[in-house]
Amino acid sequence: MSTQSVVTAMRVLEAVSDNQPAGLSEISREVDVPKATVLRMLRTLGELGWVAQSEGQAGKWLLTNHAFAVASRGSSGSAIRDAAMGPLNGLQLDTTETVHLAVPDRRFMLVLERLDTPHVLRAFLPLGSRVPMHASATGIAYLAAAEESYVEEYLSVPLDAVTPQTVVDPPSLRQLIADTQVRGFSINEQGLSTGITSIGVAFLGPGQAPAGSISISGPSSRIVREKFDEYGQAAIGAARDISRALSAYSTKLHPA
């Protein structure tokens, strides 16, 4: 297989991940490759156990459990998840809302772990989901902890709205980032999912650099403004513990 074929195969795999269940035409448009080539790649990836056709939707493709298992064995993601599980469990018990763990993946936050609320009405992001930074509490928190050059680069590309409430205006997003830096946690009201509010906090990894974020998410009818500070402080405490577990505690990011 040529180098270009490998590149195309990986792009097809990423397109399936981003859009699953993904159709042939959809994948072809995203990777800008003819349908015949995409189909050949999908069949090869299928033979290798990375993708499979959806049983419920004809002509649609999904990532397999094998793909998730390989990705979850990544050393960095595994170390972060191991460090985060204790604090995340405590945070979920304290708030009784859904808690997410996410790490940066280009311009997105990749959901590594989710602890669900016992409430019937709840927030839900499948493991492996990639959500735009500017549209998510985890992403805004990550941007608030990142270097200015990182934020500048992120804002250099037009921002797409996920919901009518998504902040896509660069000056407005900068204000959200600044507010997050002051209070220590982000607030995302319906920017990713209509009817869902989330509170996010970044944590540090090796070199004192932001390594990811955690969030508390739930229906906007439950996570009301009166709860913001309580949940924000709880998330700051959990993020502080994760940073410490990763040997990257910082009083600047997580003041006592």
Rank of each mutant, 00 (worst) to 15 (best):
V103F: 04
Q57S: 02
T98I: 01
W61Q: 14
E113M: 01
P87N: 04
G90T: 06
Q20A: 14
T37D: 14
E55N: 01
S78V: 05
T117R: 04
S72D: 15
K35Q: 15
S76Y: 08
L62W: 07
F124H: 03
M85P: 06
N19E: 10
I80W: 02
V38A: 10
I80G: 00
A15E: 01
Q53H: 05
F68G: 14
A52Y: 09
A69F: 06
S78P: 04
G74H: 11
A71T: 09
E30V: 09
R114P: 00
L42W: 05
L93H: 11
T37R: 15
G86T: 10
S28R: 01
T98N: 01
R73L: 11
M41C: 13
P87C: 01
H66M: 12
D94G: 10
P104A: 11
W50S: 00
S28K: 07
S75D: 09
L45Q: 12
E14R: 08
H119I: 06
G46K: 04
S54R: 11
M41H: 07
T95W: 13
R29C: 08
V111Q: 00
E47S: 10
P126K: 14
R11N: 13
R73M: 13
W50D: 00
A15W: 02
Q53W: 01
P21S: 05
Q92S: 00
P34G: 14
G86Y: 04
D82W: 07
A84G: 04
L63P: 04
F124R: 00
G86K: 08
Q53T: 10
M10V: 14
A15P: 03
R106S: 15
N19Q: 13
V51H: 01
E113N: 02
D94S: 15
L101D: 01
R29Y: 06
V38G: 13
K35C: 07
A58I: 02
F108R: 12
M41I: 03
D32S: 15
V70P: 12
H119V: 09
K60I: 02
H100I: 01
H66Y: 13
E113F: 00
G46S: 03
H66W: 12
L24M: 13
R40Q: 11
A84V: 08
T98Y: 03
S28V: 10
G74K: 02
W50L: 15
E47T: 04
R122F: 00
H66P: 05
Q53D: 08
R106V: 07
T37L: 14
E26K: 12
H119R: 13
Q57C: 05
A22Y: 03
A36H: 04
Q57D: 11
L88S: 01
D82T: 13
E55T: 05
A67Y: 06
Q92M: 02
L110I: 02
A67K: 02
G56F: 06
A67M: 08
R43F: 03
R11H: 06
R107F: 06
I80F: 01
G86E: 03
L127N: 06
L24N: 05
D32C: 12
L91H: 03
A84R: 01
V111T: 05
E26F: 06
L48T: 07
G49A: 09
D116H: 00
G46C: 01
E26M: 14
Q57K: 14
V12I: 15
G90N: 00
G23M: 09
V16T: 05
E26N: 12
K35V: 09
S25C: 08
R122D: 09
S75Y: 08
V51C: 05
V33E: 03
F68D: 09
R107Q: 14
